[in-house]
């Protein structure tokens, strides 16, 4: 973890209520896809945890959905403005577990962290398939970006206005894969878990106090003991998850 002062390079709408923000500054604390940063937003007491879509030597890219006061304030920010972030938070996905044909399963704003993961999987010589699910055509983003990386993409929308009609689980039908990585709403995880044919990892979300393991605000029970989503997660192994009702 590091504290980093970023400068906004770009903050543009990508889909309905979804924005992509490019931030210039130190990205050295990020070591694994699926890690997140925690942004201080003017007018909000708590920071806003946002998963990182990608990073390079110049900075990081985040994709976020406007869901409340904090993300609304972020959406109004422009190039040149400064943002204070805690960076390199969370454990992240394990690309080395993916095997030859890993499956990426993303739901809505859960898609972004899979982008960096996809890039790393391809760099390792794997042939990933990305199953991306959204509500409607207006919500869809990043299908072309995954294809440009070299991944096979299957798109599903709940209303059928883009790709095939249905959920990610419908789009998973008939696919063979060596391992899976999922990020999205918990309802999606439960549906995926009922049909998944391999080991895999899920990236969880929870309301956080600090985002770095101090407050115990985001603890969850697992078969391997109590875990802090922010520090011991957000990525958990399929085998350790306790699906509480």
């Amino acid at each position: 973890m590091k504290q980093t002062e970023y400068r906004i390079v770009e903050n543009l709408p990508l889909a309905r209520d979804v924005f992509r923000m490019r931030l210039a500054g130190d990205s050295s604390a990020f070591t694994a896809p699926g890690q997140f940063l925690n942004l201080r937003v003017e007018g909000c007491y708590l920071r806003r945890p946002i998963s990182v879509c990608d990073w390079d030597r110049e900075g990081v890219t985040i994709i976020y959905k406007v869901v409340g006061k904090g993300t609304a304030a972020m959406s109004r920010m422009g190039p040149g403005e400064a943002l204070d972030a805690l960076t390199g938070l969370g454990n992240g996905f394990s690309p080395e577990k993916g095997g030859a044909a890993p499956l990426l399963i993303g739901g809505g704003v859960g898609v972004p962290p899979l982008y960096r993961l996809c890039r790393e999987l391809i760099a390792r010589g794997a042939h990933p398939t990305a199953v991306l699910g959204f509500g409607s055509a207006a919500d869809v983003f990043y299908c072309e970006e995954f294809e440009a990386l070299g991944a096979q993409v299957r798109l599903a929308t709940a209303d059928g206005s883009a790709g095939q009609r249905g959920f990610v689980t419908d789009a998973m039908a008939g696919l063979d894969y060596t391992y899976f990585y999922a990020c999205g709403p918990e309802a999606m995880f439960r549906a995926v878990d009922r049909i998944a044919k391999s080991s895999g990892q899920y990236s969880f979300e929870e309301r956080m106090g600090c985002g770095f393991g101090a407050c115990m605000g985001c603890s969850c029970r697992t078969l391997t003991g109590s875990k802090r989503i922010c520090r011991d997660g957000p990525v958990l192994e399929r085998e350790e998850i306790l699906w509480e009702k």
Partner: peptide, 20 residues
């Protein structure tokens, strides 16, 4: 002790609520 179920955190004006 494991503590309470989540969500355990809520934001407030100039503060927060915890129920760890």
């Amino acid at each position: 002790r494991f503590g309470n179920p989540t969500p355990r955190i809520a934001e407030c004006t100039a503060g927060m609520i915890n129920s760890v």
